[in-house]
């Protein structure tokens, strides 16, 4: 590891240096530079196709950057992938699981991949599944699970290795209101213990409540970065939702809604 990265690792958990990724002619992520200190919950927002998931994939070693680098806890994800991956937990947007395993079997697999003691894995798995209210389904194949149940298993798997950095891509997807509430509190608690959380979401109310800092990405570029209050002041808006709309939408939302409504009901076609 280079000196610079090691030094940054002392206070920065995640560092993106001019991170970029292209797919052919499409530049999905352009020159993203961020430093996220340890213990911070950083909301990463953007419209569909802005490059959020691509950033997470690069930061977690699932996609190689075309330029720049991502450093997690001092480890360059491309140069030292195993070291970096040992300290991260990921809840992917895809929700991918081996559904023909049971939650207990899946968590046991995850535990062994991180060399966690078998008893410790079993105890943690039991606790997580109980807290999420799916302990009765712990030995059932996940083929029968709802999206929310699968999401609970994914979150449990991400937390199992006790990671110091968490990458969460739409973690509330499919979760019921109570579980979402538990997760939000859990994230705050983990952050207070020094864990760093990189939180991608479209649910702006949650981001506003949970995140210490918000980064907004549009067409692969960071267009805003700051605390929620700072962004509100900067844009003279009252809520993160309004801030987001102000910064990311170039069209009149009311006009879009009217056009949609006419299209759904067919009024536009009839009148035409």
């Amino acid at each position: 590891m280079e000196d610079g990265a090691r030094e940054r690792a002392t206070d920065a958990a995640i560092v993106f240096e001019n991170l970029a990724r292209s797919f052919g002619e499409i530049e999905a992520v352009k020159d993203v530079t961020l430093t996220i200190p340890r213990g911070q919950i950083c909301g990463y927002l953007g419209p569909n196709g802005a490059g959020k998931t691509t950033t997470v994939k690069m930061a977690t070693g699932m996609l190689e950057p075309t330029a720049g680098r991502a450093i997690v806890e001092g480890f360059d994800i491309v140069q030292e992938p195993l070291e970096a991956k040992r300290v991260i937990g990921v809840v992917p947007e895809t929700g991918a699981l081996y559904t023909t395993l049971t939650p207990n079997e899946y968590l046991a697999l995850v535990g062994r991949l991180y060399h966690i003691d078998r008893d410790e894995t079993e105890a943690k798995a039991h606790t997580f599944l109980e807290l999420f209210g799916i302990e009765d389904a712990a030995d059932r194949l996940m083929t029968t699970f709802s999206r929310g149940m699968k999401q609970k298993v994914l979150i449990s798997a991400a937390l199992l290795p006790n990671p110091s950095v968490l990458f969460l891509d739409e973690p509330l997807s499919g979760l019921d209101a109570n579980t979402a509430l538990v997760l939000k509190e859990l994230l705050r608690d983990l952050a207070s213990q020094g864990r760093t959380i990189f939180y991608c979401s479209h649910i702006l109310e949650v981001v506003e409540k949970v995140c210490d800092r918000v980064v907004i990405l549009v067409r692969g570029e960071v267009i805003a970065d700051g605390r929620v209050e700072e962004l509100k002041d900067m844009t003279h808006q009252g809520s993160l939702e309004d801030v987001f709309s102000e910064l990311t939408s170039s069209e009149d939302l009311a006009q879009i809604v009217r056009a949609f409504s006419r299209s759904v009901t067919g009024d536009g076609e009839r009148s035409a």
Binding site: Y98, T99, T100, E105, R112, L113, T143
Partner: peptide
Amino acid sequence: WEQFRALLVASVRLDLRSTRMQRGRA
């Protein structure tokens, strides 16, 4: 080798189970 064993056991389990559903059960 620990990861190897874990991955192999999981793969064999996946082989021996069907993803097809019949009346709500695998």
